[in-house]
Computed example of a mutant assay.
Amino acid sequence: MPPIHRFLKGCRLVHLYLGVFTAPALLFFAITGGLQTFGLHESARDGSHAPPKWLAVAAQLHKKQTMDVPVRKLRPAANAASVPAARPLAGTAARRAGNPLPLKIFTALVALALAVSTLTGLYMAWRYTRHAGRVVAVFLAGVAVPLLLALV
């Protein structure tokens, strides 16, 4: 076998096993990132919305690599007259805020596409290899290692 073929075969194997090992983390980050796009993990300052505990913990793992969710302080109710008007920062031009919803929808679609692409890659890695047991073992290691590191 010529050296270039051995090199390419090695590259394919590295790609296969690195992809399978990192697939659980990719799925986790794609799903939690997609949910964070819409702020579903945050509680409202006035206390009107509290996210599910699992979502708050998953978002905290995604952002800060810890499961300790900080308690958000409630904003005291204040009169509109007692709150000073916000002044723009010196030197900044008044900017049009725009509508963030189209970009949020696009970001959620990218997160969904990443999750689907990862799942189809896992299926192909498992289905089209002679060593399906190795693929499963590497995938399970990709699940176990981050879980163990999160508990340390």
Rank of each mutant, 00 (worst) to 15 (best):
W54Y: 09
H41Y: 15
T22I: 12
L101W: 08
P2G: 07
L55N: 07
V69L: 14
R127M: 11
A86K: 06
A94G: 03
G39R: 15
A85V: 07
H15N: 14
A25V: 15
L119Q: 04
L16N: 13
L109P: 03
V14G: 09
A90Q: 08
P24M: 14
K104M: 06
Y17E: 11
F7Y: 11
A150F: 03
K9S: 09
K64Y: 10
P2S: 03
V116I: 10
M67H: 10
L35M: 15
L119I: 08
P70L: 04
A81F: 05
A80Q: 06
H5M: 05
R127V: 08
H131C: 02
V136I: 14
K73E: 13
A113R: 05
L103R: 00
H49C: 07
V138F: 11
T22F: 15
I31N: 10
K73T: 10
V69T: 07
P76Q: 08
V116K: 10
V152S: 03
A113C: 09
L147A: 14
T118G: 06
A58W: 05
A59D: 06
A137N: 05
L122I: 06
A132N: 07
R75V: 14
T32C: 12
G133D: 12
R130W: 13
P146C: 09
A85I: 02
P51A: 09
G91Y: 03
W126V: 06
R12S: 12
S117L: 10
A90P: 00
I4E: 06
F139E: 04
F38L: 15
R75G: 01
K9D: 15
K64T: 08
P88T: 00
R96A: 04
V57W: 06
P70M: 01
Y17N: 12
M124T: 13
V69D: 04
L13Q: 14
